[in-house]
Computed example of a mutant assay.
Amino acid sequence: MTPTVVCFHHAGGSAAAYRDWGSEHDLRIHAVCLPGRDGRRNEPSPTSMDSLVEQLDDELGELLATEHVLFGHSMGGTIAYELALRRMRRNARLPLAMIVVASNPPHLQPAGLPLDEMTDLEIARSLTELGGIPPILLERPEWLGPLMRPVKDDLRLCRSARVVGDAELAPLPVSLHVIGGSRDRLVPPERLATWRLHAGRDFSLSILDGAGHFLVTENRSEVTALVAAVVDRTRVGVL
């Protein structure tokens, strides 16, 4: 049976980022829609990583009881890790593998933005430099309020995640695969390499030359090929 790749998006993103992934490499994709956006926009946005993961564990329970791979980009990697950690602690079924892309390791303080001191335009400029939003939006500051609201909500959600201390390290007994970009200034390769501390089984690190923080969209074909390779290995029982 082909495992389902359960995908979590980056801060300010949406499940739509993975809409067409299923047509590539014969992947079975479940893109998670978080509260407060898309079809769930009338629900309050989550403010606590712990409470969000508890909610997702319940909502996705039926799916996670089947063979699956967890995938997360940036904030999504934090969600995937916290979800797997919660399920490990309560002896629930774990993923066959976990893939995190451009995501800050849980034992390191994230290099976040000082949101409370920045205007929407300043936040937008920072995201433009990282490749997260098109520069043309900076020319229309009146559009930024609604666009920045989910971004700020998600960045605050990321700040709520607890940094794991050395004495609390609990490697996940799953295959862990990390993907990053050589030009990612937010989560550079040397930081990504320390995810190895959280791998209880196989670990791999793939750095895409010339890629930045938003490689899930900018380097989509390369990322999906790496995801497909992980899924194929689970099919034949290598992982």
Rank of each mutant, 00 (worst) to 15 (best):
S103M: 04
S103I: 02
N104G: 11
P105T: 00
P106I: 03
H107E: 01
H107C: 04
H107F: 05
Q109T: 15
Q109I: 15
P110N: 11
P110E: 05
P110T: 08
P110M: 08
A111M: 13
G112V: 08
L113W: 09
L113E: 08
P114V: 14
P114W: 09
L115I: 14
L115D: 07
L115H: 12
L115C: 12
E117A: 13
M118L: 14
M118K: 04
T119G: 08
T119H: 06
T119P: 07
L121T: 15
L121Q: 15
E122F: 10
I123N: 01
I123W: 01
I123L: 12
A124L: 06
A124C: 12
A124I: 04
R125Y: 04
S126H: 10
T128F: 02
T128K: 02
E129Y: 00
L130T: 09
L130W: 05
L130R: 10
L130F: 08
G131S: 05
I133R: 00
I133P: 01
P134E: 07
P134I: 04
P135D: 11
I136Q: 14
L137G: 05
L137F: 08
E139Q: 15
E139N: 11
R140N: 11
R140F: 13
P141T: 02
E142Q: 15
E142C: 11
W143Q: 11
W143T: 06
L144N: 01
L144Y: 02
L144H: 03
G145E: 13
P146W: 03
P146T: 03
L147C: 07
M148H: 05
M148A: 07
R149Q: 10
R149K: 13
R149A: 10
R149D: 06
P150R: 00
P150T: 02
V151L: 01
K152M: 11
D153L: 05
D153K: 04
L155Y: 14
L155Q: 12
C158W: 09
C158Q: 14
S160M: 06
A161I: 10
R162W: 05
R162T: 14
V163W: 02
G165S: 07
A167L: 06
E168V: 10
E168K: 08
E168A: 12
L169A: 10
P171H: 09
P171E: 08
L172H: 11
L172Y: 12
P173I: 15
P173L: 15
P173M: 15
H177F: 11
H177W: 10
V178R: 01
V178I: 11
I179F: 04
G180V: 04
G180P: 04
G181W: 01
G181E: 01
